[in-house]
Design a protein around this nucleic acid. Structure first.
Lengths: 154, 154
DNA sequence: TGGATCGTTCAGTAAATTCTGAAACATCTG
DNA sequence: CAGATGTTTCAGAATTTACTGAACGATCCA
């Protein structure tokens, strides 16, 4: 591999990290969480907490909360190494399925809330019921689709 | 219908509106946009701009941008009535399909950006390619699921 | 045990987003 | 055309969210 190619790959890598940061932001996650995820996707290796702060040049506080968020969502895995003070991280085994699991959870919650309203609209107002039901059906349908995706990714 | 029932329905309606406001916020939309949408779902009628400001008690500026956002996404329809200065609004004919259309668009965009990265990772780094490709596949799969939902809602 | 390294917490700051209200602009009516 | 009514725009206020950095408690090593 020539130097030029190395430089280009480093550049591709850094652009990827920034892109995923923006995608995360667009999906309502902290940008830094997206960058950490991207870093682990691209590099593949097990990285230490310190590695991550160094690569991304952000405060340890931010890395702490980003890693915890990603860990809670099942996107990354925290590893302890015997005789090592540092925490280590790698991609989870099934990050995308877990990501979709969180999405499905949100959809179910929304569907449930609308269901509560539906239960309170009397039969004497069938037009209202129908419209609220259409809305509920939308979340049901999305939930089904997402669960199907989880299957397809397995 | 008794007064008690009427009061209860009014209450159900207002709780629904607030709930949808929060759901919208949770999905990254302005809360007011969610409330406007909920109002039109629940009431079903054609409502004027003024009706909406009165029902929701927010500034006309906010209603103006919320209605435009919802209109742009194909969730509501703006109507002109002959001999009437006011704008009128009703639910779009297929609001949920259009909502999903926007979602699918975002997924496609994300997928495309990751595809750009993938194209730049050389064959000499197959491990990186595989991981980036898995990530791209995730967006593909989601896109497929959403498009399927659109079909199912038709 | 003392000193170093590490991760978390939290208070304060920065940045982004939403909302308001007033001014500008447009349309209708008499 | 003048006045009344209606919508948009935009500057600034309010709110929310993300981020930093320092203090703290924990763990490891000499």
């Amino acid at each position: 591999m020539t130097d030029t190619e190395t430089d280009t790959l480093a550049q591709v890598r850094s652009e990827f990290i920034e892109k995923v940061g923006l995608i995360a932001q667009n999906e309502g996650l902290p940008r830094i969480a997206g960058r950490v995820f991207a870093l682990l996707v691209f590099d593949g290796d097990v990285l230490s907490f310190g590695d991550i702060t160094r690569h991304l040049e952000v405060s340890r506080g931010s890395i702490s909360s980003a890693t915890r968020l990603l860990e809670d969502r099942g996107l990354i895995k925290r590893l302890g190494k015997p005789g090592q003070r540092q925490d280590f991280f790698r991609l989870a085994d099934n990050p995308y399925e877990n990501m979709l699991g969180a999405v499905a959870g949100n959809l179910d919650r929304a569907r449930a809330e609308i269901g509560e309203t539906l239960a309170l609209v009397p039969d004497t107002r069938p037009e209202i019921r129908r419209r609220v039901q259409d809305y509920a059906r939308f979340y049901e349908e999305m939930g089904r689709a997402v669960r199907q995706s989880i299957e397809n990714l397995k």
